[in-house]
Write a protein that binds this DNA or RNA. Structure first.
Length: 290
DNA sequence: TGCCCCCTGCAG
DNA sequence: CTGCAGGGGGCA
């Protein structure tokens, strides 16, 4: 579930606490795809924590655990004295629960006495262990485009990437990690709203002005999300509470039927590429400008 | 490119 | 009961 802002926030939050910790033991109370591989990291010192698209790299001198939280994954760090508790990922009741809880799939214990919990109610999250020097190969295999937070994610780049996706909608193109790695369903909807572009528009039909606005919309959406420490990350209660918080924070996502903050028109929800898609029918027109 | 699947929980 | 959930891979 977490998108770029959540994963980035989580990595920044945990990095200073995890780096230099020695991995001492682990438990898997429930299955985690690839989780057993963590056995190979026993005794290893963590040298880095990085984000790549929506992936998290937990690095040791020789290897990297590559973790994807998918839709429902969470990471929670608890210090040895139990007084520091840092959480990120999917907002939900299990994020604030006593740990381990019913969704806990992996516990990593460090020599210091602190520990890291991975919760995932749906068993979609997965982990793989790769040699440290094969990270470039992984990036190549995934064919990720330039990170949207990097200076390489320019209008010129996006123009070319979108022109390659001529037969798809702009919404689907944004969800394509080879085009915009890290962008997810919320960021896509929010960015398109800021840019005033209808999500069902053909990706190759956008003109230069629209692509410029889209690049700006993506940057603004990501920046706002990271500044917040992860979109709507403050909502960790019931589905209903989370939804309410999302409606406070987002412009269109989760706001079906509510008034557009710019023009007052009710926000609509359609399905594109199998994903719920939210937009303002007045501010985001279906047809090209000319 | 579109569909289906992976899995669980919650709300209408 | 059905639909829905901030993801992604495999399939024809």
């Amino acid at each position: 579930m977490p998108e770029l802002p959540e994963v980035e926030s989580l990595v920044r939050l945990l990095r200073p606490h995890l780096v230099n910790q020695i991995i001492a033991a682990y438990e898997m109370p429930k299955p985690l795809h690839g989780g057993y591989q963590i056995a190979d990291l026993m005794g290893q010192r963590i040298t880095g924590l990085e984000r790549c698209a929506k992936l998290i790299f937990l690095r040791t001198p020789g290897a990297a655990a590559v973790l994807h939280l998918m839709l429902n994954g969470q990471l929670i760090y608890i210090s040895a004295d139990g007084r520091t508790r840092l959480a990120g990922g999917h907002p939900g009741p299990d994020m604030i629960a006593e740990l381990p809880c019913s969704t806990t799939r992996l516990i990593i214990r460090f020599a210091s006495g602190s520990r890291l919990y991975l919760n995932d109610s749906r068993n979609f999250a997965h982990m793989e262990l790769i040699p440290a020097d094969s990270i470039p190969d992984l990036r190549k295999r995934k064919r990720y485009g330039p990170d949207p937070l990097s200076p390489d994610f320019t209008a010129d780049y996006l123009q070319i990437a979108l022109s390659r996706r001529s037969r798809t909608t702009i919404k689907e193109a944004l969800l394509d990690q080879t085009v915009a790695p890290g962008i997810g369903n919320i960021c896509a909807d929010e960015s398109l709203f800021l840019a005033g572009i209808h999500p069902a528009r053909s990706s190759a039909d956008l003109d230069d002005v629209e692509i410029g606005r889209l690049v700006k919309g993506i940057a603004d959406t990501l920046e706002a999300g990271i500044r917040r420490g992860g979109s709507a990350n403050e909502a960790r209660g019931s589905v209903k509470e989370t939804r309410r918080a999302q409606q406070q924070v987002f412009k269109v996502y989760a706001r079906k039927g509510l008034s557009c903050l710019r023009c007052g028109t009710p926000i609509e929800r359609i399905v594109i590429g199998g994903r719920g898609t939210h937009y303002c029918p007045k501010c985001q027109r279906r047809t090209a400008p000319n």
